[in-house]
Design a binder for these strands. Structure first.
Lengths: 328, 328
DNA sequence: CTGAAAGCGCTTACAG
DNA sequence: CTGAAAGCGCTTACAG
């Protein structure tokens, strides 16, 4: 089965390509088509199995039906979940998701990734914005960039309320009468600003609630590396036997804590940040700080396609309010 | 920063577009360029930050630097791992990975997915071939399709040796003196041929080794749904208290078994099929049937780009030999 | 060694 | 209501 062209469809229907194009694009602009012509074109297109050549269409219009997503490694369940939710929201609008990279390697800079997407004529990009990656530089003006994440900026974007999320977690730990709490997060080679912000916020909340400053620990490696997380967690638990409760910053970090605690027959309270399916069914049902990934994705797509604005007005700086899910 | 065009680069360098094109594409064909011209073009391109317009290039040549991948849902760690490995192998060859769909919904047919990739001018597609999905129909002749998977076909493709994998597992269980063994797998709404083949093979191997026919169980839901897997496993373990060992067909299935067994304080031997990072660090280090995903990906890419052939010659029908990884 | 021209398939003003 | 034409940016034979 060969690829048909618009020309061939038009010939078959006995009309000009321009007319066929108008029909197949839903009769835009001032071009209207008679019922019978319309039917003939539609029939011919169906018979020949016509599929629009996206390359040509994109070249001509400079637009595409694809929206890019730059996140983290898809092996991190948070990002595969986010991508799945984004895709779902896009498909409902007849749009397509293009993922920049499955795994962003060290050498690949953000700018390079944007460029690759741009080459594909993707002119809307949703990206997970971590201060760590220093993604804040300005880019090609002709690509619309929508940041999402939990950094709390005053600039437009779709933001999760980090303060609220951490406050919920700390309040819960206080209510359960935890005295000494800790924090476990992934960390690359360098100091990560994004982790620092979370730790800082956590410290602040602890202070407010009268807890002593939290212990912190990290695993060195890719964020999705559950092996690194488990090894890190094991060492952390060994070094800090008196900590009652841990906040795992990332479902993989949480998973590492859960694995390690179990192997060592320890039972600290472990709050899981993210809320992907991965941790939801852990035996004993740990408390989960649900980031509401589906809601985030829906909102992001809605903003990206222009249905809603992401302007920051007054105190409205966050769109998504995470929730704490407790074992029942 | 606006997008530059080849024309603008050529103007700046004082040459014709055709010359600039020749330089930027590595001087193909009979077109050779003098050293100085070459340098001028390269300089101008760098100064203007020239990036080839892929849409135009694809439209003109009918080729692209992208290779498609159609697998399962990326929330299934097997597929995200496979995608990451494929991407790595492709990047080494300056090629790009385009993932068809993050999550293949029920309604999306395989043909539709191929079409979407094709629209993007992807003319090489690597796909995970499960008999379940009835992917065997012929497709557009102008797209090169490379099947990979463990179905053992006589047609070209990159195949994992399923028999060998299961034989290794059964031999291991026999050596550990297991008497009653079982099988746990994901299953959609309908009977899945792919699962049936695995079960059949498992049964055969059990017979050969003098074990009684294995018990089988399934979880109904998406393959990546760890919650469904855990619930299914819990019921399975409850209903079959005397089974000594289980084969989890899928790391999610294995994970479900591990979760459930732990919650019920049971300790059957659980062999994990796949070998993604997810199960590698489970406390107690379960035996893992490593499918060698990285090797599979490398081989698949090598075949897809034409470095190697996937022709089936004589008895050589499998390329990848899975290995059993034991706790040390 | 370099230039001029054609054309990939589509869409969009514009003319009729 | 429909047709003719231009042109998006690129690459590839071909001519000089």
């Amino acid at each position: 089965m060969m690829m048909t062209t618009l020309k061939r469809v038009a010939q078959e229907a006995g009309v000009h390509v321009a007319t066929a194009s108008a029909v197949l694009n839903g009769a835009v602009g001032n071009t209207r088509v008679s019922e019978s012509t319309r039917d003939r074109v539609l029939l011919a297109a169906r018979q020949q199995g016509y599929v629009r050549n996206e390359s040509a269409s994109r070249l001509r219009t400079g637009k595409s039906n694809a929206v890019g997503f730059i996140g983290g490694d898809m092996r991190n369940p948070f990002f595969s979940e986010l991508a799945a939710c984004l895709e779902k929201a896009l498909l409902q609008r007849d749009l397509q998701l293009v993922i920049s990279h499955v795994s962003i390697s060290q050498s690949t800079t953000f700018a390079k990734t944007v460029q690759i997407l741009h080459q594909q004529m993707v002119n809307k990009i949703i990206y997970w914005d971590e201060p760590a990656s220093s993604l804040f530089e300005p880019f090609k003006a002709d690509t619309q960039m929508l940041p999402i994440g939990f950094t709390k900026h005053t600039r437009p974007g779709v933001w999760l309320d980090l303060n609220h999320a951490i406050r919920l977690s700390v309040a819960y730990l206080v209510k359960r009468r935890m005295r000494r709490v800790g924090f476990f997060a992934p960390q690359g080679q360098k100091e990560s600003p994004s982790v620092a912000i979370r730790l800082k916020t956590f410290q602040n909340e602890c202070l407010k609630f009268g807890l002593r400053s939290p212990t912190s620990g990290y695993y060195v490696g890719e964020s999705w590396d559950i092996q690194a997380a488990t090894e890190g967690a094991r060492e952390l638990l060994r070094n800090h036997p008196k900590i009652d409760a841990w906040l795992g910053f990332n479902d993989i970090a949480a998973m590492g804590l859960l694995f390690a605690a179990q192997a060592m027959s320890r039972k600290p309270v472990i709050v899981c940040f993210d809320g992907t399916p991965l941790v939801r069914n852990w035996p004993g049902k740990p408390p989960i700080l649900d980031l509401k990934i589906a809601t985030l994705a829906e909102k992001a797509v809605s903003v990206a396609v222009g249905e809603e604005s992401a302007e920051v007005t007054g105190k409205r700086r966050h769109w998504i309010r995470p929730e704490l899910i407790l074992p029942n």
